[in-house]
Amino acid sequence: MLKIKDLHAGVEGNNILKGINLEVKPGEIHAIMGPNGSGKSSLASVLAGKDNYEVTSGSIEFEGKDLLDMDPEIRAREGIFLAFQYPVEIPGVSNLGFLKTAIKDVREHRGLPPLSAKEFLQRTREKQQLVEFDTQLANRSLNEGFSGGEKKRNEIFQLAMLEPKLSILDETDSGLDIDALRIVANGVNKLRSENNAFIIITHYQRLLDYIVPDVVHVLANGQIVKSGGKELALELEEKGYDWIKEDILNKTV
């Protein structure tokens, strides 16, 4: 589904990603962990197409197509979804109104007929339940006055509504209390299927108690320095990131 090859990227001449290689197959959940400043969120931004990031070399293929060639909205329509670390508040844009437009555009791109008002309503109701997202919130302006947890749940609600193929959760767990964390994780677990995939970016192992990843990667200094099974996350939680740094140092020596 996703093939990242030797990706180098940065902002304003600062290299942040220094040769990322990653392959994600349908049905898989990948966790990306790593210390602050390692480039985790930059990777998410590059995948979503944020324009202040400059890709200097390497390639990203999504379902056989060149992702780097696409504008952000085309990537979204092709099936990439980024759950933002800091979702913006947009007073005056209605949550459901904007989702309606987004779904229309996504379906049009995929050659699907638009949802009828009834179908849209039905999907809204169903997905709201799935992520335990309050109807009151869904009907408000986009994230306006939402708490941190409500914003994150809204991201998962949008994810559920848009039915993407590849979802990237950028530190969705940060700022969540334990109940919200459970709700978000339950949502993801219900949404996962053999046709879609998830990249979960997180600092902590906590979220991975609820969402069990197939692969865990450790990102440090712009590179994936270690990959392993879900037990790697536990090891990181226990020992911190320093041992990995030492590990790499030993290898290079």
């Binding site: 197409g49 979204a76 980024l82 947009i90 007073p91 844009v93 555009d105 996504v106 949008q158």
Partner: peptide, 28 residues
């Protein structure tokens, strides 16, 4: 620009996004 990117990241094109944001700006 962050708000515009947010909308685009959901599949909404630049023009529609701008229009939405201007309507939102006028919303008050």
């Amino acid at each position: 620009p962050d708000a515009l990117f947010y909308l685009k990241a959901r599949g909404i094109n630049e023009e529609d996004g701008r229009s939405m944001l201007v309507n939102a700006f006028a919303f008050d």
